[in-house]
Amino acid sequence: MLSSILSLLNTTLMYSAPLIFGAMGGVISERAGVVNIGIEGMMTFGAFVGASIGYYTANPWLGFLAGGLAGALMALLHAIASISFKADQTISGMALNFIGPGLSLFLCRIFFSNQTMTDRVPNKLPKVFNVIDITVFIALAVTILLWFILYKTKWGLRIRSVGEHPAAADTLGINVYKIRYLSVISSGFLAGLGGASMTLAVVAQFTPTSISGQGFIALAAVIFGKWTPQGAYGACLLFAIAQALAVSLGGGKIAVPSEIINMLPYVLTIIILILFVGKSMAPKASGKPYDKGTR
């Protein structure tokens, strides 16, 4: 009994880490007023670059960092489009969801002898006490750090004000564009870390299905958690528990087809949303480009 609970817990934490990184990326970008629907694409690219660098350097930490930077690079594109060009943030985010997987697989075929998956990395990221991925703790640390920054520092106040009322922030001498650029780029960095944590800690290679929907689930977790780091963290954890339950209940242990059990996390999320979570309130200026001249 105890061992099955422990294994459930372990699976939960394992599933949660990539989601949490992605969700924190979503929180910071949306709090600064830029909708980031491209988390999925950034995670995919981060997962690929992370695994490739991890493979070629045999250093998983270098791979992890490179994954983050790859995500940040994609986010820079999103920032240029949505902040400088005042583009539609949904379109440019969606574009990244096409570019991320496309470019990853294209490069993968070039660097890994025409295969759509990378070779296995020689060293995975270490596990704490030999059981729990270290990324789980990094994800928790990132959440606490982000909470601290957002609510306890002047930088956080600036980020939130830029997301709620950029014009007012501007009149107080806050550089709206700079704050938004920094937020979106860190958003991509975190999403990239999330992707890399999938391919360097959970599994040891990049495949076309390494990132399949985690970015969108992270996006849902952001909304579910009402745009707060702690809320999104809880949402990711809840989702991961449901996922772990589905895994441990599956495999013919109970008389329900595994396809039905696999629906559990998604059905559960909807039920919880209906029962406990009221109307979600997005940051006011989220999704609206800021134009200096307008009032």
């Binding site: 949505s82 539609d88 990244l96 096409f98 997987p101 496309g102 075929r109 759509t116």
Partner: peptide, 17 residues
């Protein structure tokens, strides 16, 4: 690699933005 098509589609979308 035919994945260049997916990439191209993304880039076009990006320019649409």
């Amino acid at each position: 690699p035919s994945e260049i098509i997916g990439t191209t589609i993304g880039i076009i979308l990006f320019f649409v933005a």
